[in-house]
C-alpha cells in the first residue's frame, strides 16, 4: 500500500496539478500552439519551395534542396534548436537590438519542419500521374501554370494526413525550445510543468503537462486516421452506367 500511495503522491497529486493548471492553460497552451502552428506555417511555405526545387529539371536547385533536407533531417532537433537559438541570438541582437529567443525558436522549428514537409510535398506532387501535367500542357497551360493549378493541388490533397502528422510532431518538439531560456510569459506547456515540478519536487505537474499534450495530439491522430480512411474509400466510388451513349452529339 505504501508503494502505491507513494506513486500516487508523486504522479497524481491533484493539488499540485490544480495549482499549475491555470498557468498551463493561460500561458503554456497558447505558447505551445503559437510555436507549433507558426512553425508549421513557415515550414509549409519553405517546404513547398524545397519541393518545387526538388522536382526541378535544373540540377542546381535540386541539389540545394537535397543538401538542405539531408542536413535538417539528419540532425537531432535539440542540436538544431541550440545552434540556431544560441548561435543566431547575438546576430539578431546586433541587427535588431532584440534579445528575445522566442522568434529564433520558431525559426529553428520551422527550418526543421521544412525539411520534412518538403519531402512530404515532393512525394505528393510526384505521385500525381504524369498524364495530369501532360493534359494541362496539351490545353496550352505553361509548365508553371499547370503545376500551380493542376498538379500541386492534387499533390497537397494526397499528403494532408502526413502534414497533420507533422503538426503533431511540432506540438511535441516545441517543448524543446525551453533550452533557449524564455521569459516566464513565453513558457510553453512542458516548461511550465517542469518548473513547477522542480519547485515542488513532485512530478504531478509534468503528468498534467502530459495529459494536456495528449488532449492536443490524440484528436489529431484520429483526424489523420479519419482522413486516411476517407481518401482510401474515395478511390472506390460508385460509377454509374453510361446511359447517355444513345444521345451523343445531339444534346438532350
Amino acid at each position: 500500500m505504501d508503494v502505491l500511495e507513494q506513486l500516487a503522491k508523486t504522479f497524481l497529486d491533484w493539488e499540485a496539478m490544480a495549482e499549475v493548471i491555470p498557468a498551463m492553460l493561460t500561458v503554456g497552451l497558447p505558447n505551445t500552439l503559437i510555436l507549433a502552428v507558426s512553425s508549421a506555417f513557415f515550414g509549409c511555405v519553405l517546404g513547398m519551395i524545397l519541393a518545387v526545387m526538388g522536382i526541378s529539371r535544373n540540377p542546381i536547385p535540386r541539389w540545394i534542396a537535397r543538401i538542405y533536407t539531408d542536413i535538417f533531417r539528419g540532425l537531432p532537433a535539440i542540436l538544431t534548436i541550440l545552434l540556431i537559438g544560441l548561435g543566431l541570438g547575438p546576430v539578431v541582437r546586433i541587427l535588431t537590438g532584440s534579445t528575445n529567443p522566442y522568434p529564433l525558436g520558431i525559426l529553428a522549428l520551422s527550418l526543421m519542419a521544412a525539411a520534412y514537409i518538403g519531402e512530404i510535398f515532393r512525394s505528393g506532387i510526384q505521385s500525381v500521374e504524369s498524364g495530369q501535367l501532360e493534359a494541362s500542357r496539351a490545353l496550352g497551360f505553361s509548365y508553371s501554370a499547370a503545376m500551380v493549378l493542376i498538379v500541386i493541388p492534387q499533390g497537397i490533397r494526397r499528403v494532408l494526413p502526413a502534414l497533420v502528422n507533422q503538426l503533431i510532431s511540432l506540438i511535441k518538439d516545441s517543448s524543446l525550445i525551453y533550452m533557449l531560456g524564455l521569459l516566464a510569459s513565453q513558457r510553453e506547456i512542458f516548461r511550465i510543468g517542469n518548473d513547477q515540478a522542480a519547485t515542488t519536487g513532485n512530478l504531478s505537474p509534468l503528468v498534467a503537462a502530459g495529459l494536456l499534450y495528449l488532449c492536443l495530439t490524440v484528436p489529431l491522430t484520429h483526424l489523420v486516421n479519419f482522413m486516411d480512411k476517407r481518401m482510401r474509400e474515395g478511390k472506390t466510388q460508385k460509377v454509374e452506367p453510361d446511359e447517355a451513349a444513345a444521345i451523343i452529339g445531339k444534346g438532350h
Binding site: E129, G131, Q132, E134, A135, A138, I150, P153, Q154
Partner: peptide, 10 residues
C-alpha cells in the same frame, strides 16, 4: 484526347 482521359479529378 488521351487514352486515360486525364480529367482533373479535383
Amino acid at each position: 484526347v488521351f487514352q486515360q482521359f486525364n480529367l482533373f479529378p479535383h
